[in-house]
Design a protein around this nucleic acid. Structure first.
Lengths: 220, 220
DNA sequence: TGCAAAAATTGACGCAAAGTCACGTTCCGT
DNA sequence: ACGGAACGTGACTTTGCGTCAATTTTTGCA
């Protein structure tokens, strides 16, 4: 490891707690994030440039780089905000679970309710210029996946779950959660309860246990 | 709709079937795609530039734009090749299905076997500089999703499936397929049969029917 | 309060890659 | 074999990125 005293960067003294410096720093960061959300939603992630973001801001271009390295990092920050809010809730719910059913249903219910509430953000982020669909999972999101796998492993150790492949099960839950959430938001069915019931039924008993459609009229 | 005769673009006459023109066009396109595959694998998708791609080619920079609009479009073309190859196979398998079990298991088996065989491509495309995970679904891939939903609806009409929400079921299958495929490729378990058995068991009977681990030694 | 140092902002600048286009070359139909 | 159309070429223009010296704002301290 290189701990060169000469080359080491100055490491700015931490701003005083309630000071003006700290104040504007928080303010500016939020200004940039807000502008980014707006511009991403308008132009789509791929098409927006760092310049587009700062243009939607009273700040100068150089200032942007005091806060983020690139538009990717801004995107990450936006996603991370969401991930960091939902992860503790999910862990808490799963920790309380005394059975498989509780474990699965609380996970899906919490997730879908959160997505439904956060729908604006969700849509803004998803929007893309061409018809290509993009999903980016930041390290914070991926950490959430790992937490799920850990919880599954703990549940197996506690004999709440049978000894299945925790990695695959985690992947299956994540896959269903994200894809079904997308259908919920995109489609005309914005009901998180229905989504949660569907996903839970699938994991609890497979296709045969899925809820039947109210009106059997097929789209085809 | 604007059908301006003056402004309308020339619409080049289609090259003769076996002619030299057509020949080199196909050739050049493939040269670019091949170079792109190599460079994406080397530098990662995010880091490669259009120039990097043509530099790995005897062609001039201007020529690139005769074939593709951007590196995104090259990426799409690569993905589309895969999608266009696997989609008919999946349809065929599902069309033969006489029961839910056949429908589900053939879908997963075909998909995972394809991914395992195509693993090099899969990894190359996935390779990314930062630790962010990206998944891009091109229109051709999305069309594959729609085909799955159509097949599900047909199966419901034929009373092979109960009248469940076809949109959600499609989403669930897609989600499990992609996420589990990723674990299969990334992890140390490159066995498509195991992945297919896991996913099929989940959809046929839920968590309780999942195969148990061979060696019960947990990772945690 | 006044002052010097530290921190942060600013926008112009240098650079790298994107995308265009006038020109030359190759191919095609007659 | 000739004329025109399609294609390839690479220099050129444009666009956006990231930096940095100069400037402004804030802070700590006497």
């Amino acid at each position: 490891m290189v701990t060169d005293t000469v080359t080491a960067k100055p490491e700015p003294r931490p701003a005083r707690a309630g000071g003006k410096r700290e104040q504007t720093k928080i303010q500016n960061r939020e200004t940039i994030l807000e502008a980014a959300r707006k511009v991403f939603a308008e132009l789509g992630y791929g098409a927006t440039t760092v310049r587009d973001i700062i243009r939607a801001t009273p700040l100068a271009s150089g200032t942007f780089y005091n806060y983020f390295q690139s538009k990717e990092e801004v995107y990450q920050a936006i996603r991370d905000e969401v991930a960091l809010e939902i992860r503790p809730r999910l862990r808490e719910e799963r920790a309380k679970a005394k059975s498989i059913d509780e474990f699965i249903s609380s996970t899906f219910r919490t997730f879908f309710e959160f997505v439904a509430r956060d729908e604006g953000n969700f849509r803004a982020i998803r929007h893309n210029a061409d018809s290509t669909r993009v999903r980016m999972d930041t390290p914070e999101v991926l950490a959430g996946f790992t937490e799920l796998r850990e919880d599954i492993e703990k549940a197996i150790a506690d004999a709440i779950f049978p000894p299945v492949d925790a990695d695959f099960l985690m992947a299956a839950i994540v896959g269903v959660a994200f894809e079904v959430a997308e259908r919920m938001v995109i489609g005309d069915n914005h009901n998180p309860s229905e989504a949660a019931e569907f996903a839970t039924a699938l994991f609890m008993g497979g296709v045969h246990k899925l809820p039947h459609r109210k009106n059997a009229a097929g789209t085809a």
